[in-house]
Design a protein around this nucleic acid. Structure first.
Lengths: 209, 209
DNA sequence: CCGCCCATCAGCCAAAAGGTTGACCGACGC
DNA sequence: GCGTCGGTCAACCTTTTGGCTGATGGGCGG
């Protein structure tokens, strides 16, 4: 029996996942959470085999899915596995989730059969990446590594939202010099000379959404 | 009996809506569609009372939810009502949906009770806007439209691709002064002060892809 | 015909962004 | 322990961008 906790802020999505899992004899949905915090809390209490985790918990959420994933994976053994189930497939999200200890990464438009297969794989301790995700990861490994550090990605993301260097600096609690330094590195890595083209290139490569 | 068609590209979401509606005696889910085209087709065939319509059908979709809504509302009387159920609440989406003839607009994070209430209201021919949406719509009506001229959009598009002003000028066979002039207009229309945020805003409003 | 909008261009100034060089610290691997 | 790397910061300089003001001509609708 695979005991599962569902973490998603949308009631509709939770109901959908539950509806898809209920017919499965060996899968038991033991709890639902609407926030990242609640998910971590539930995981600690119920110690399920697996947590199905959304990454996006509304704009006003304190704890992201990535944070919750890290918290859950830091629980004493046997820590529940975490299977990320989200809408987005950018490097920022995937990398963050994998770094936080997620066993798998599925997109919400995946067919139900994929979801079930991924749940079984993840609960067995295997890794379960959607083909799109897996291939992206592969191509990333072998192609000329445009590897941006987490911080660089974070800065670039804020820039893409239209923030000036000073604003980015204030948001991240660093000086403008630091932001410019990060951006300079990003530029050379991406082979560009301006923030706008950096954003364009990053977007086309799936580094940003 | 309220006969409903569900249009959403995510199997999980469809299952969720179905699971929420099934217990309701007077609501009957008569069909599901994964694309906008399929939704319009189903609506024509089945003539349900109501179509629950997502606006986003994956990046490669030919027909958006807005288009499908317009098509459905153009069916001969009694044309099915359309209740938009989506993740996004940008002005462009809401306005487009309402203009296309949607009876209501709900966000997917709405509680199930709201969804049921909205379905009953919409099926009765009433309008059902979530409070957040309603207030946003009001404020939007008051403010003036953001209309960019073709040339301005063209310039902004090149900027979004990362081109500097001189490059844009060269591409369009005009001087840099002209480009700056266009951009200045774009900035004031979008209420921003930098090219990156102009791109961000334009993108969020659907002016650019 | 007269505004009005659009597209074109100019010059000037201030602010933001980018290029360069160099430096410090902490973590991590060997 | 030492090199490497990521993150932090600084000073200086050049280029780009944005803000302001203003000007010309073409088209379109009242």
């Amino acid at each position: 029996m695979i005991r599962v906790v569902i973490a998603d802020d949308h009631p509709i999505v939770r109901a959908g996942i539950r509806a898809l899992l209920d017919p499965e004899a060996e899968i038991d949905v033991v709890g639902e959470a609407q926030t990242g915090d609640a998910a971590a809390e539930l995981a600690r209490e119920l110690l399920p085999d697996l947590v199905l985790m959304d990454l996006q918990f509304g704009v006003d959420a304190r704890t992201s899915g990535v944070d919750a994933t890290a918290t859950i994976r830091a629980l004493p053994e046997p820590a529940p596995y975490v299977l990320v189930l989200t809408n987005y497939d950018t490097d920022l999200d995937i990398l963050g989730a994998v770094e936080a200890g997620a066993s798998g990464y599925l997109l919400k438009d995946a067919p139900p059969s994929d979801l079930l297969a991924a749940i079984r794989a993840a609960a067995a301790g295997e890794s379960a990446l959607a083909p799109v995700i897996a291939s992206r990861l592969m191509s990333r490994m072998r192609s000329s590594h445009v590897r941006l550090s987490a911080r660089e990605l974070q800065v670039l993301d804020l820039v893409a939202q239209g923030h000036a260097n000073t604003e980015v600096a204030a948001t991240l609690f660093v000086t403008e010099a630091t932001v410019k330094s990060h951006l300079a590195h990003v530029f050379t890595k991406l082979g560009v000379t301006s923030r706008t083209s950096a954003v364009a290139v990053a977007r086309s490569q799936g580094l940003l959404r």
